[in-house]
Simulated scan of single mutants.
Amino acid sequence: MAELLSDSEVTSALSAAPDWQLDGASIVRTADLPSFAAAIAAVTRVGFFAEAADHHPDIDVRWRTVTFRLSTHSAGGLTAKDFALAGQIDQVLAAAV
């Protein structure tokens, strides 16, 4: 099982992920994509990373706006797995714009 990050580790990891916000025991990022099709394509690409990592974000799609929420539910909060997947999501979103 992944180890929970300390508050200072979360703060440090968030400083390297400026598009992500802390929300309770989760990190959240919302992105506006150019179109609904682009939003769905980005979600699909994130899905492949999530499956490979066996770590699945909560995803909300509203037209061309996508919100990703990460937390390691089995650990009860944030772990390095969340920030690793956040980095991959950032890469997908950077390529989608």
Rank of each mutant, 00 (worst) to 15 (best):
A2L: 10
E3R: 12
S6M: 09
D7Y: 05
S8P: 06
S8H: 13
E9S: 11
E9A: 15
S12P: 04
A13H: 07
A13K: 10
L14W: 09
A16H: 07
A17G: 11
P18W: 12
W20T: 07
Q21D: 09
Q21S: 13
Q21C: 13
D23C: 12
G24M: 15
A25W: 01
A25N: 03
A25I: 14
S26Q: 14
S26L: 07
I27Y: 00
V28Y: 03
R29E: 00
R29H: 02
R29W: 00
R29C: 00
T30P: 02
T30N: 05
A31Q: 06
D32G: 13
P34I: 02
F36V: 02
A37K: 12
A37E: 11
A38V: 00
A38F: 00
A39Y: 02
A39V: 03
I40V: 12
A41D: 14
A41Q: 08
A41L: 09
V43Y: 00
V43A: 01
V46A: 04
F48V: 14
F49V: 12
A50R: 04
E51G: 08
A52F: 05
A53I: 11
A53S: 12
D54V: 08
H55R: 10
P57K: 12
I59G: 04
D60G: 10
V61Q: 05
V61E: 08
R62E: 10
R62Q: 09
W63M: 13
R64L: 05
R64G: 00
T65V: 12
T65D: 04
T65R: 15
V66N: 03
T67M: 14
F68C: 03
F68V: 05
F68H: 03
L70P: 00
S71L: 11
T72Y: 02
T72I: 11
T72V: 09
H73T: 06
H73G: 07
S74V: 09
A75M: 07
G76E: 06
G76F: 15
G77S: 14
L78Q: 01
L78M: 08
T79Y: 06
A80T: 13
A80M: 07
A80D: 09
K81F: 03
K81G: 03
D82L: 06
D82V: 08
F83C: 02
L85G: 00
L85C: 03
A86P: 02
A86L: 02
G87P: 06
Q88R: 10
I89A: 01
V92F: 08
L93H: 05
A94D: 07
A94L: 10
A95M: 10
A95V: 14
A96V: 03
A96M: 15
V97C: 09
